[in-house]
Amino acid sequence: MSIISVYEADKSDLMYKRFASLASSYLDMPENAKSSTAQIPLENLFRLLEMYKYDAFSDESRTGILAVKNNKDRIVMRSASIPWQTKVVEVLDSAISEIFKGTKKDEAVDDLEETLRLLSSSNEIDDGRKRRARGFFNKLAEELA
């Protein structure tokens, strides 16, 4: 038996908050986005935008095809928990609507993904693109908790 058992709550909201705040800071200081460690928040935000674009948030860990459970394993009822992405999607919806007024969701996501790519590859980002992305990531950082 392990020496400790701790319930690891889903901290996705907090992690995205941190990643969004870092992305916003990279827009102010693009030289910091060049480091390999900066790719971690940027890649995570890119992955989030992909899940959002395709509404593909199904992410549960599955056991193997032959998973055998013996009679020592407890049979446990699942709680009716709120899906992990609920709050994140709410904030994404409102950030898109506020920053990209009237733009279609897919177009807004493509715009943000392109900005993340430009940022991570140290390419020049025009002011309009920078302003939209900064507004979007600041909104995420403010509203996720």
Binding site: S12, Y16, I40, E43, N44, G64, A67
Partner: peptide
């Protein structure tokens, strides 16, 4: 160990400290 070991671990999509996805075939 175990006949039931066959699996491919896929790292989750939700946020994690990672850059590229790693698949572990067992």
């Amino acid at each position: 160990g175990g006949l039931d070991a066959y699996r491919i671990y896929t790292e989750p999509n939700r946020p994690r400290v990672s850059r590229r996805r790693i698949l572990t075939i067992v």
